[in-house]
């Protein structure tokens, strides 16, 4: 039953997304230049409509099919170890999204060498609740220095320099 509810939420969300997408496509992307021209609008519009149809089909199947969900196994191969059915961990997901966004921001402002230990420390403190100072220091500095040496110094990959602070 939980699966059924989840599918209804999924179907409804996708249907709303498809309607918004289709509306935005019509509103913001101009048609092709000539009569026979397949313009920039065509494909996003077709995809939006297909998504709407599929979402409605998903909802329709759930409404018309009154029998309980017989799918007991979830078999999408490589995804199997990832979130288990009904087990969305909202807090870690939202926290990680915020941390990734902060990492992107800090990379541009204070550069890779300072941003990386800050983010690793933050993840260890907030997500894993590690309080051991030697562990915090070794992980954050070890990872930063090893990545900096391997990628920037050995492989010549450009790692971000900060616009506020730049220490290499």
């Amino acid at each position: 039953m939980a699966n059924r509810m989840q599918d209804i939420v999924l179907g409804a969300t996708l249907a709303v997304l498809a309607v918004i997408w289709t509306g935005l496509v019509i509103d913001t992307i101009p048609r092709g230049f000539g009569d026979g021209e397949i313009g920039a609008r065509a494909f996003p519009l077709i995809f939006g409509i297909i998504l709407l149809v599929l979402a409605v089909l998903l909802l329709g199947r759930l409404i018309l099919n009154s029998e309980p969900d017989v799918r007991t196994e979830y078999d999408v191969s490589a995804d199997a170890e990832l979130p288990q059915p009904g087990g969305v961990k909202w807090m870690p997901a939202v926290l990680l999204l915020a941390e990734i966004a902060l990492y992107g921001f800090l990379l541009e402002k204070i550069g890779f060498v300072l941003a990386t230990p800050v983010i690793v420390l933050l993840i260890m403190l907030l997500n894993l609740r590690v309080r051991s100072i030697p562990k915090l220091a070794s992980m954050s500095l070890g990872l930063t220095v090893s990545c900096w040496v391997i990628f920037e110094k050995l492989l010549g990959i450009y790692l971000a320099n900060g616009t506020w602070i730049n220490i290499g």
Partner: peptide, 8 residues
Amino acid sequence: IAMRVPIT
């Protein structure tokens, strides 16, 4: 993935 949508 949590909603059983395959990602491949």
